[in-house]
């Protein structure tokens, strides 16, 4: 049922519950002289709507996994199905399209484009999805208001605090309403207060139906999530439910930030995305 249309796999509808499925995933770094085994036969399934932390020390393979999950890198062996699409068979341009529509990235160092306003930064994924200028600036403004930065829309990244920058990055990650939010040490460069704020936003997103995967090495950050996967030496050493996730303070308002994707069929292509967005205005959970 998937991969029939190889050129635009992200158009296919997928009702599978598994958003991420890794089968015997191996990553080997070939540096010429020596071969380094980055990941050793990983099998992992993450379902739609889960809130997962991936933990491990540096060199444990979690960053490698993150790159593969983010379609920035390809596995050496095995399969990675994202939303039912076998990413191994995709060209680099197709991977770009997958990243654009299926994945929202939040990085440790924010990775906002400098000398470009917060609004333009949030618009960027929509620009690459070929969404009309008017619609994307409307949506970007809406997203910035949701993360409490409506008044800072025209500020440059260097005029914002770390926490504010990360909130812009979250708004940007949500621009195309991707099913998967991938956060790589999202609080690594933030103070405790800002870290908690960011994690509360992720909690709210999770409640709204988003699948959130957070890579971290801090226990108190992982404590917000509902499932903790620990990595060591390129292998999964434990995979446990978190019975008592840290509750949000309730101070964070994310109304309209994320629309419930868990129930509806996937809306992949940008045109469909726009139509769906127009039609489903009342679909907001928060």
């Amino acid at each position: 049922m998937f991969g029939r249309n190889k050129l635009s796999p992200y158009v296919t509808e997928n009702l599978s519950e598994d958003l991420i499925r890794l089968e015997n995933l191996v990553k080997i770094y070939d540096t010429g002289a020596i071969k380094v085994l980055g990941l050793k036969k990983i099998n992992l399934t993450i379902q739609r709507g889960e809130f997962v932390a991936i933990m491990g020390h540096s060199g444990s393979g979690k960053s490698t996994l993150m790159n593969i999950l983010g379609c920035l890198d390809r596995p050496t062996l095995g399969h990675y199905y994202l939303d039912g699409i076998d990413t191994a068979s995709l060209s680099s341009n197709e991977l770009s399209a997958v990243r654009n529509l299926k994945i929202g990235f939040v990085f440790q160092s924010f990775n906002l484009i400098s000398r470009t306003s917060a609004l333009k930064n949030v618009e960027l994924p929509m620009t690459y999805a070929r969404i009309s200028k008017r619609k994307r600036s409307e949506r970007a403004m809406e997203l910035l208001e949701c993360v409490g930065l409506g008044k800072r829309a025209y500020h440059m990244p260097n005029e914002l605090s770390g926490g504010q920058r990360q909130r812009v990055a979250i708004a940007r990650a949500l621009a195309n309403e991707p099913p998967l939010i991938l956060a790589d040490e999202p609080t690594g460069n933030l103070d405790t207060a800002a870290s908690i704020e960011i994690m509360e936003i992720f909690s709210e997103l999770h409640k709204a139906g988003a699948t959130v995967v957070v890579v971290t090495h801090e226990e108190n950050i992982a404590a917000f999530t509902h499932r903790i996967i620990r990595f060591s030496d390129g292998q999964i050493v434990s995979d446990e439910r978190n019975p008592n996730p840290t509750p949000g303070s309730g101070d964070v308002h994310t109304k309209g930030l994320y629309k419930n994707r868990a129930t509806g069929a996937q809306r992949g292509q940008s045109k469909e995305l726009e139509q769906a967005k127009d039609a489903g205005k009342g679909d907001n959970v928060c």
Binding site: G70, S92, S96, N111, L112, Y128, R172
Partner: peptide, 16 residues
């Protein structure tokens, strides 16, 4: 280079 990386991560194709 970093900006190019960010753009690519956000879905910029080679042509873009």
């Amino acid at each position: 280079t970093r900006e190019i990386g960010i753009r690519k991560a956000l879905g910029a194709k080679t042509r873009d």
